[in-house]
Structure formats: C-alpha cells, structure tokens
Design a binder for these strands. Structure first.
Lengths: 326, 326
DNA sequence: CTCCTGTGTGCATACGTATAACCAGCTTAG
DNA sequence: CTAAGCTGGTTATACGTATGCACACAGGAG
C-alpha cells in the first residue's frame, strides 16, 4: 500500500487519519491509492500500537428481557456519536462473567448491567484499573461508578398509589434478593406499605426470577389469596402476571390492579396499558456512558467512585384503579 | 511475565495455550506464575500474530424487532460452543452498513441479517474474500452463502388457511419491497390467493416497514375496507395490528382473523395467541453458523455459494377462524 | 566412545500500525 | 550570505504475541 502511493508507511498512516502536518497533495495521493486498492487500515495493528481497541462491552446476562434490549439499543445510539464500537458480552453457560475477555486488551471499557450483589467482578476489574460502570444494578462490596434509578423510592411510589386508592389486600411479586433491584424494590415497597400500617402476610408475596414465565406462575399462586392489587418488581414479571390473569379471566383493573416497574416499550402497548414505575433509560444510559468515557480518558489519575441516582416516575395507565367494592 | 516464571516469552505463550511439546513441569510453573501475576495474554498481540481476532459480527439494523433479538440470543448460544465471540454491528445513522468495520481485521466473519435487496455489501465482501452468511434475508445480485426460510411457501400456507376457512375479503399488510422477505412473502400470498381465484384490490393491501407502529396505522386503514381476515408479513406488523384492532374494539378472531409470520416468542403469549407462520430460529441460526464456520476455516479454497432453505410451518393459535356469518 | 534421535526450550522474526526522532529543502530574519 | 526556523516527509522503533528454526541435552544404538 505504501509502495503503491509512493510514500512511506507512516505517511500512509498519517494521511488516512488526517494528520494536519501532511501536505494536501500527499494526502490526496494516498487517499486515492487507498481507494483504488480498497485498502482499509488494520485494526489489529492499530490496537497493538495504540494500546486501545475502540471497543466497549456491554455485559448482559438476560437478553430475553426487553428492558436490557432497550438499554442496548440506547447504548448503541449513544456510542454511535463516538468512535467506539459496542460488543455484547454474556456470561457463559456456567453463569460466570467473562473476566478474562474483559481484560485481555480487546476492550477499552465496559458497562455492566446484570451484575448480582455478590459478584466479584467489579472488585477484580477495579483492582486491575479496568474502566467500567455499573448500570441499573449495583453491588455492595466494591466502590465503583454506578448509575441507577432510586429503586427504593420507585417501589414506594407504587405502594403509595395503591394505598391511596384504598387497596388493603395488596400482593407483591418481588425479584431475586441476589440483585440490588430485587432487594431495593422489595424494601421500598415494604416500607411504603409499612407507612400505612399494612402488613405483607406470607400468602401475599413471592420472590421470582425476572422472567415472564416465573411471573405468570407466581401470579397464579398469589391469586389464591384474593388480593385486589399486585405489585411486580419489574415489567416482565408484570406482563407475565398480566397474561396469566388474562388467561384466568381475571379482569384488570376491575378485579385486580397491576403495577410494574421499568416502563419497557411493551408496557405502553394497547393490549397492556400497564401502569408502571418508569426509569429514564436514555438518561440512565447517557449518564453511564459519560461516567465510562471520563473514566476511560482519565486512565492515569485515580478518579473517585461516582454514583448517579435518577428519579423514578409513575406512569399512570390502565391496569390500576380502586379496589372492587366489597 | 516471562521473567517472573524464569522462562522465555515464547515458552509462556506455549504454556498458556497448552502446547504439548512443553514439559509438564515447565507448564505448571508458568501457569502458577501467571495466576500470581493475574496475567492475561493480550488479545491485541495475539490478533496481530495469528491474523484472526476470534470475533464474529452479527449485523442487525433493527434491534427493536424481537425476531432479531431471538436470532441474536440463539447465535450467542451457538457461538458459546466455539472460541468465538459475538460482536453486534448496526448500521450508522445514515443507514450505511459498516463495510470498513467488517474488513478492518477486527472480525473473522459475519452474519448479515437485515440486508436489503439492493445492498452492495455482499458483493463487496465476497470480492474481498471476507467470510459471511446472509441470514433470513437474501440479495439478488451477489452469489453467497444464504440461510432463509421458504418465505413464498410460508405466505402461501397462510393464504390457503384463510381461504380454506371460507374467507373471501382478505386483507394483506406486506413488508417493504426492498427486502427479500417483504417481496417473497407478498408474492407467495398473492399466489396463494390467485390459486383460489381471489383478487387483492387496492383498498385491501398496504406495504409498511416492519415496525409495530406502522402495523397499527396500516391495520386501521385496511379496517375501513371491512376485511374478514388480515395477513401480516411479520409478527411485529401483526402485533401492531392486533393492538390497533384491540383498541378499536374489534374482536379477534370473531370479526377479523389475523395471521402473522415469524413466530416470535411474544406471539405465543396468552393475550395474543397469535396464529403465525413459524420459522425455526435455532435451526436457521445453527445452519448459518455452520455455513460461516466452514467458510472461515476454508479460507484458501474458493467454496461455492451455498443456500439453505428451511420449511416454514403454520402455528395454529387463536387469532384466526372462520369469517363472521353474513 | 561416537553418532544419532528425540525432547524441550531459546532465538529471531513477523504481524501492521503509531509515534518519536531525525533530516532535507525551503523560507526568512539578521 | 549564513544561521535559524518551518514544512513535509523518512527512518527507526515499539506494541505483545505466535511460530519456524536452531540448539542443548539426554538417552539409546552401534
């Protein structure tokens, strides 16, 4: 390639990256030669030389959850304004997160979304100085950059809404206590009920993994305790519950009010019109991206761990209302 | 690192990759030193030396379509049995597909899913000898590896089913004619109607992009022509139509039968129970992966273009039935 | 004892780019 | 007219791994 343009290899490198020290004539000659040869600079050589790959990973374990899809989509949008590419990394079959794949030099940074509370990954990455940000979920142990919604407060909003409407037999379908979202939304909802002096007897709550089928199954169990309202710790659980109740002929919200959490796109569909606690996904992803980018550029200086907490808002749709009379 | 283990750099390389020519003692020493130092071999150096990155791209333009999500999920599963990683590549804001990103050496191969009929990408990649496979959609111009479902036949199945039930005022919501799926499903459905001597007057068909909102809007337009059945060229369109009709109080299938195409997971949900033409996504992804892997290993010899066509099947659920009397 | 063979490791080099350092030729100031 | 600066390039080198090849050493055969 350098030979074809009649210049040295470094000149090719500078010409194609627009180094201003080159003369316009030379650059033009190189660019034309490159086009004629269909030459594309090797990212392999470039990575090695610059010690950076221009790639950022998003670590997700649950691609089946539309919430993470929207996050992924939004992150892709955010990164498209940068020269960075997005790599999707998923834990392998054993559930272990790909530590080695993150630190093998093929990535400049990462956004971790489905981290579990006892994950060792953040600590290991921090120790190694690898830039990363936790999104949506956080961990207790390692101090690191985090971007989350105020889950506790969001769940309290839901509880307050149901209580305000006069519900007293309120059921709750919580998420796994191994996740910060599961734990905090449960604590918030219980706190909200507690403020109104309400209990949560065993037959009125369950914990389930954040999955559609699990939501459907647990909802049917809870239904036997005859609640007038059901809070679900995320929209997938709520949509599973919606489907299960729909299948049983239970009318929503006339017989049972239903509130979810996340406000995924599906929640707004006409057939669902799910009342839910909304997270500002673009805002969350934008903030996380900013955190990551600043950390990636400040590689030298030890930046202190930063924490961005967004405010949840309640989206009133059509799956909640006052309890049925009697 | 080599110094820490008291051996040369090539020995470290061989030890960590399990080269059998090394003595067990040396290997053990190196591995222990590597663990102590938290040493992870640089993928950057490795890529340059081996002229391969271990990364495969999946090119998708529409992450909002759950069909591609399932493809992505399935591909991830298929690749997890290989040493390959999956990179998600999306066209930029201008819609141009990232040719340079594919051939800059950071990828060993690609699976192209949302290719449009007039795309120049397959030809360009073929010419360059870059291994890739078209999945779900195909192009006319360039001969290359392809894995698709028999879209023509699938759409005929839908037409035959509706005709068999006695429908005569059948509406159709087709996809963009810039895609092979849009074109072939339209041709198949028209052919199916034609076999029964049925016409498709202008007020009974539309073309729309494969998007939820577009499906909803077009369905409402078509509704004015009072059809007793509606075929949609994919499930997203069908779900959009379902929602729109649901919003208008139209009962499905009592007043209007609805049939989709793809059989995404959502289609099986209780609230939808969408009758649809099913594609075997795991089979399709598996076949595409095989095509790609063989092409990636046979880098030298010019492999002839191969074409895998899967059979669609009809999934009878609850959105279709006989036309209303009168 | 010598020669040969096989085993295990080091040495030299290649991969393709980026970048520091250097240098030729021209311009400009003194 | 010369020294100093500027412009626009070249040369040399580094990045971290893989791999062909040379080579030391041990063991066995002749």
């Amino acid at each position: 390639m350098a030979r074809a343009a009649g210049v040295s290899q470094p000149t090719v490198s500078r010409a194609l990256r627009g180094d201003p020290r080159l003369s316009e004539a030379t650059r033009k000659r190189v660019v034309e030669a490159a086009e004629a040869l269909q030459y594309v600079p090797s990212q392999r050589g470039r990575s090695l030389a610059t010690r950076s790959s221009g790639q950022v990973a998003i670590v997700v374990s649950d691609l089946g959850n539309p919430f993470y899809l929207q996050v992924l989509d939004e992150l892709h949008r955010a990164l498209s304004e940068t020269p960075l590419r997005m790599l999707v990394l998923t834990p392998d079959a054993h559930g272990s997160v790909p530590f080695e794949r993150l630190v093998d030099g093929s990535l400049d940074g990462a956004i971790l979304t489905t981290t579990v509370l006892d994950s060792q990954l953040p600590a290991a990455l921090s120790e190694r100085g690898f830039p990363f940000v936790l999104l949506n979920r956080e961990v207790d142990a390692a101090p690191c950059d985090v971007c989350v919604v105020d889950n506790h407060r969001g769940a309290m909003l839901a509880a307050a809404e149901l209580i305000g409407l006069g519900h007293t037999r309120i059921a709750a379908l919580f998420g796994p206590s191994t996740t910060s979202t599961g734990r905090d939304r449960e604590a918030g909802f219980r706190a909200g009920l507690g403020q109104a002096g309400l209990e949560l007897p065993d037959q009125l709550w369950r914990r389930a993994p954040f999955q559609f089928d699990a939501g459907a199954a647990a909802a049917l169990e809870l239904l036997e305790a005859r609640p007038t309202a059901l809070f679900c710790a995320n929209d997938i659980l709520a949509l599973g519950a919606f489907n299960a109740l729909h299948g049983r002929g239970v009318r929503i919200p006339e017989q049972v009010s239903l509130i979810g959490f996340d406000d995924v796109l599906l929640a707004g569909w006409d057939v669902f019109q799910l009342t839910t606690i909304s997270q500002d996904i673009p805002g969350m992803v934008g903030a996380a991206t900013n955190l990551l980018l600043t950390r990636m550029t400040n590689e030298g200086d030890p930046l202190p761990p930063r924490r961005v907490v967004l405010e949840p808002t309640m989206v009133h749709r059509r799956t909640h209302g006052p309890p049925p009379p009697g």
